[in-house]
C-alpha cells in the first residue's frame, strides 16, 4: 500500500539510485572487487609454480602459516617500527616548516614552491637520488664522512643492517615533510589572528601562545597529517625496493615488499594474497583508530568553534555552528 504522498519522492529516489548506480558499480568494481578477490584467493592454496597441486580451498591455513613465519613477523615489526620512527620526525619538521611558511611575508610563493619540491619528485627517483648520496664508492655523503674520518674506509651504509635504514628514513622524511607542512599550513591559516593578538595583549609569550593557542587549534590538522603519514608508512614499499631491495639479508624488508616477493617472485598467489590482506587489515585498523581519535578531538575542540571561526580543515558541513 504505497503512500500517495511519498510516491513522487520515492520515484525520485529510485531515479536517483538509478543515476548513481553506474558510478557506484564502478566504485565497487575497482575498490571492493579486488579486495574481495584477494581475500578469496588468500583462502586457497595456490602456487603458480606448482600447478599439479591445484587450487584447493584451505580456509585460514595461509594466515596460520603467516603467524608462524619468522620472515613475516620480522617484516611486520620492522614496518611498525619504521612508522613509529619516521612519522613523528615528519610531523615535527612539517610543523616547523609550516610555521615558517605561515610567518613568511616576503617571497611567500617562492618559499612554498621550494618547500614542495621534494614532494613533487616521484618516489622512485627520490630513492635513486638517495642511493647515490649514500653510495659507498662515489656517494657525496659517504665520501665527505670518510674525508672527515668519521667513518671507516670500508663502511657501506647499504651493507649494514641498521645503517641501511638511514637512507630509507632520510628519503621518506625528506620527501613527505612538505606534504605534512602543507596540511598543517592549511590548519594554521584557519586560526583567527585575533586570538593570538588577544593573548599577546594579555602578556603571553611566544612559547605560551604556541602551546595554548596554536598547537591545540592546529591539532585536528596534525591528526589528519599523522593519519595519512602512518597509513603511508605502513605500506612502505618503493623506497625499500629501490634503495636496498630489502637487504642486507632481509634487514630492511617491509611487509609490502615481502608480500610482493611472495606474490610476484615466488608466485605463491594464495600465501601472497594472505600477506596482502594482512597489510590491508593493518592499515584499515590503523585508519579506524585515527578516525576515532579525530572524532574525540573534534568533540574536545567543539567549544572553541563557538568562540570563533577555528574549524579545522576536517570539519564537515554536518557540524553545527
Amino acid at each position: 500500500m504505497p503512500d500517495p504522498m511519498t510516491r513522487p519522492a520515492r520515484a525520485e529516489a529510485r531515479l536517483g539510485w538509478l543515476l548513481v548506480s553506474p558510478a557506484l558499480g564502478l566504485i565497487l568494481l575497482v575498490s571492493l572487487g579486488p579486495i574481495l578477490a584477494t581475500t578469496w584467493e588468500a583462502l586457497h592454496g595456490h602456487d603458480l609454480r606448482l600447478p599439479w597441486l591445484g587450487r584447493p580451498f584451505i580456509g585460514l591455513a595461509n594466515f596460520v602459516e603467516a603467524a608462524g613465519d619468522p620472515r613475516f613477523l620480522a617484516a611486520l615489526a620492522r614496518t611498525v617500527a619504521f612508522a613509529a620512527v619516521s612519522v613523528p620526525i615528519e610531523l615535527a619538521l612539517g610543523l616547523a616548516l609550516a610555521l615558517v611558511m605561515h610567518a613568511t611575508v616576503r617571497g611567500r610563493a617562492l618559499v612554498r614552491v621550494a618547500a614542495l619540491l621534494p614532494w613533487a619528485i616521484p618516489t622512485v627517483v627520490a630513492a635513486l637520488i638517495w642511493r647515490f648520496i649514500f653510495d659507498a664508492q662515489a656517494g657525496i655523503l659517504t665520501a665527505s664522512l670518510r674525508d672527515l674520518g668519521a667513518i671507516d674506509a670500508a663502511f657501506d651504509w647499504l651493507v649494514h643492517p641498521v645503517a641501511a635504514w638511514v637512507p630509507i628514513i632520510g628519503a621518506d622524511v625528506w620527501k613527505t615533510t612538505p606534504f605534512v607542512a602543507i596540511l598543517l599550513l592549511a590548519g594554521l591559516q584557519t586560526i583567527d589572528p585575533a586570538l593570538d593578538e588577544a593573548a599577546r595583549i594579555d602578556g603571553a609569550g611566544a612559547v605560551r601562545r604556541f602551546a595554548t593557542i596554536t598547537l591545540p587549534l592546529v591539532g585536528p590538522a596534525l591528526v589528519v597529517a599523522a593519519a595519512f603519514r602512518t597509513l603511508d608508512a605502513l605500506r612502505l614499499f618503493d623506497l625499500a625496493y629501490v634503495l636496498t631491495g630489502g637487504g642486507p639479508g632481509t634487514a630492511t624488508e617491509p611487509l609490502s615488499l615481502y608480500a610482493f616477493i611472495a606474490l610476484m617472485q615466488r608466485l605463491r598467489f594464495g600465501y601472497g594474497s594472505a600477506l596482502s590482506v594482512t597489510v590491508f587489515l593493518l592499515t584499515f585498523a590503523c585508519a579506524l583508530i585515527w578516525v576515532r581519535a579525530l572524532g574525540r578531538l573534534d568533540r574536545y575542540a567543539a567549544p572553541n568553534e563557538d568562540s570563533g571561526p577555528v574549524a579545522g580543515p576536517h570539519s564537515g558541513p554536518s557540524k553545527g555552528i
Binding site: 609454480r49 620472515r71 651493507v159 649494514h160 643492517p161 637487504g247 642486507p248 639479508g249 632481509t250 634487514a251 616477493i261 617472485q265 615466488r266
Partner: peptide
C-alpha cells in the same frame, strides 16, 4: 627460483655478518 630465493637471503645474511 624459490630455492634460490631462500639461499639468497641466508647467504646474504651470513656475508653481511647478521
Amino acid at each position: 627460483s624459490e630455492l634460490s630465493e631462500i639461499l639468497q637471503v641466508r647467504v646474504h645474511r651470513a656475508l653481511t655478518g647478521q
